[in-house]
Simulated assay, not measured.
Amino acid sequence: MDIVFQQVLNGLTLGGIYSLVALGLTLVYGILHVPNFAHGAFYMVGAFISYTLIAKLEVNYWLAMLGAGAVVAVLAALAERLVFHPLRNESGLHPMIAAIGLLLFLEAGVQAIWGPDFLRMPTPYTGILDLGGVTAPVQRLLIIGAAFTLMLALHLFLTRTVMGSTIIAMAQNREGASLVGIDANRVAMLTFAVSGVLAAFAATLYAPINLVYPAMGHLVITKAFVIIILGGMGSVPGAILGGLIIGFAESFGAFYVSDHYKDIIAFVALVVILSFRPQGIFKGAH
Rank of each mutant, 00 (worst) to 15 (best):
D2I: 09
L9H: 07
T13M: 06
L14H: 08
I17Y: 03
L25M: 12
V28F: 01
Y29D: 00
F37G: 04
A38V: 13
A38Y: 05
G40I: 11
A41N: 11
G46Q: 09
F48I: 02
I49W: 04
T52P: 13
L53Y: 06
E58C: 11
L63I: 14
A64S: 14
L66P: 09
G67P: 10
A73K: 06
A79H: 05
A79Q: 06
E80I: 04
R81L: 08
L82C: 13
N89C: 03
E90I: 04
G92I: 06
G92L: 06
L93R: 11
F105K: 09
G109M: 00
V110E: 11
A112D: 14
G115Y: 11
L119N: 08
R120F: 05
I128C: 07
I128G: 09
D130L: 12
G132R: 01
G133S: 02
G133K: 00
G133E: 01
V134S: 06
T135W: 09
T135V: 13
A136M: 06
P137I: 03
Q139Y: 00
Q139L: 00
L141T: 03
L156I: 06
F157M: 05
F157S: 03
T159I: 02
R160V: 05
V162S: 12
M163H: 08
S165F: 06
M170G: 00
Q172K: 05
Q172D: 04
N173Q: 05
G176F: 00
A177F: 01
S178D: 00
I182A: 02
D183W: 11
D183T: 13
A188I: 02
M189D: 00
L190M: 07
A193C: 04
G196P: 06
V197A: 02
T204N: 07
Y213D: 14
H218T: 15
V220G: 09
A224I: 07
I227G: 10
L230F: 15
G231E: 13
G232T: 08
G234F: 05
G234H: 04
S235Y: 08
P237V: 03
G238N: 05
G238I: 00
G238P: 01
A239S: 13
I240S: 03
G243H: 07
G243M: 08
I245D: 05
G247H: 04
A249K: 15
E250Y: 11
F255V: 01
D259S: 13
I265Y: 15
I265V: 13
F267T: 14
A269Q: 14
L274G: 10
L274V: 02
S275F: 14
F276V: 03
R277C: 06
P278W: 11
P278V: 00
G280C: 07
I281L: 15
A285S: 09
A285R: 10
